[in-house]
Amino acid sequence: MTSKVASMADAVRDLVRDGDTVAIEGFTHLISFAAGHEIIRQRRRDLTLCRLTPDLIYDQMVAAGVARKLVFSWLGNPGVGGLGAIRRRIEGEIPEEPLEVEEYSHFGMVGRYTAGAMNLPFFPLRSYFETDLPVANPLIRPIASPYGDGTVYAVPPLRPDVTIVHAQRASAGGDTQVWGLLGCQKEAAFAAERVIVVVEDLVDEAVIRADPNRTIIPGLIVDAVVVEPWGAHPSYVQGAYDRDNRFYLDWDPISRDEAATQAWLREWVHGVEDRAGYIEKLGAERVASLRPSASAPSGSVDYGAYR
């Protein structure tokens, strides 16, 4: 199989275009901050950013001016507070940088990716009844069951131009394996026109084939494989490094202040060349503190050989 391995700079240059609908997915786990920062460095513009939880990465990207619109279901810094840069733009504090929003619930967003992945015209779900969400977002619409069995709500398919996911490992051909929280990366990847996979480890195809149940995305739909250890910091990678909760707590006062947010971007995004530079700046001590306290390997299963 031909190698799809690329540098982050090349992958973003080739596959993320101004005006694109972009999904950097991963529910608290495996968020590709490395890709988000590269998109900022390359000064993409007018992106529609999709994520269930915009998280710190979209707060940073919105602050950097790459986005025109945000599609989401939960807008916050989990357990800490709000996302200041995004809030300021929604609340109109920075009128020269308005941000359009399109809002669903979690299940609605997951359903949208699923419909996109399955080439369906909509996804039906039992949510939104008697709420203001369909008023705020008229794309959420009631539909009667064709079998006369009541009414559900429908959400439209979401088909990103490019989906970017971080994973523990992939082969050079893009076959990608994940363990730990799975979020909706599989659905977001199958829904997308182009897919970038960012991994901690590049592995031989034999490693993938030894454990096929763990493959969530086949190389078939992958355009680029970027090898970027620690590329998910301050989010986490199950078994490799912990969520950097200190970073999430520290972001709160930075994010509350536009000048502090811009200063952070200058120092930590524009001020470093790439992810390796970011990790070096973060420091060996901080990095070491995020290692799991002990190993917890899975048992292995026997697939058997059938010749």
Partner: peptide
Amino acid sequence: LPLSIGDPTIVTGATAVVSMLELFG
């Protein structure tokens, strides 16, 4: 106690880890 409701400690030792589509559906 995880700070966020997404955290590696909720995975290790759990009965099942499923996609969000399965969880909500």
